[in-house]
Design a protein around this nucleic acid. Sequence first.
DNA 1: GTAATTGCAAAAGATTTGCCCCATT
DNA 2: AATGGGGCAAATCTTTTGCAATTAC
Lengths: 133, 133
Amino acid sequence: MKEVKRRNTRQRNVVLSVLKNTHSHPDAEWIYQEARKIIPNLSLGTVYRNLKILKDQGKIIEIKSEFSPSARYDAEVSPHGHFHCTTCDSIIDVHGVRSGDFIDETVLKGVGKVASFQVVFYGTCASCLSRNS
Amino acid sequence: MKEVKRRNTRQRNVVLSVLKNTHSHPDAEWIYQEARKIIPNLSLGTVYRNLKILKDQGKIIEIKSEFSPSARYDAEVSPHGHFHCTTCDSIIDVHGVRSGDFIDETVLKGVGKVASFQVVFYGTCASCLSRNS
DNA sequence: GTAATTGCAAAAGATTTGCCCCATT
DNA sequence: AATGGGGCAAATCTTTTGCAATTAC
């Protein structure tokens, strides 16, 4: 993506604020539906374009999961992991991920220079466990 | 996916052996092209179907990266992480990564029951670093 | 013989892009 | 006024699926 002077648009602000107001790690379609409640004639393409820009700017995180066909997004950008429940499809934040040791190790092993990382756990979340017990 | 008695087909064997013979973490299309050298009339749909079956059987791993539009595959199934070089697009194995090293198990216990996990580092690999220095 | 599997092609789903008009700076 | 951004729709890319024919067991 080329370096351009970004303008301050209502659409981009709404996309970001919708994402900041949820912990559900939604996909583009969900964000689109929510944002439409505020800007009814918003288009899905604009949502995708802005998600990419916001990701580039480091204001949001994109989550790629083996169990989700579409990318999921998160406005919490401090380093943390995710737990994807394969039963109810919800994604839960996992704080306290000790990435430092691993990044060091990776660097030490001569693999390369780490810029960021993603950790996703798969399994059954606590709610689903108790629901089926 | 329903439980069925799996048959031993040439197509599935070839897909698996193609993947076992590389460390490049290829996508379905690459596997398809390689496998076609052995079974010329193989179809891409069959490759996708078999990748899904092999994953279900735990014989291969699927890697979802923020920087790859298509899923990548790995026939090395022992728990390990990956490093995706955002310069040359190669994916490198990072061994010695265990979930317990990443996150306090007790924290994870409260979230749910973990069945598997995925760790992907993003950055610039050693080859690309030296090439551009 | 029976049911799983394949090849083919169409379909589906997710994301990107061209174009022209509008809005921000 | 200049140009980034939006809406819309078409296009692209990846993956899935229906179906009739084939193959493994």
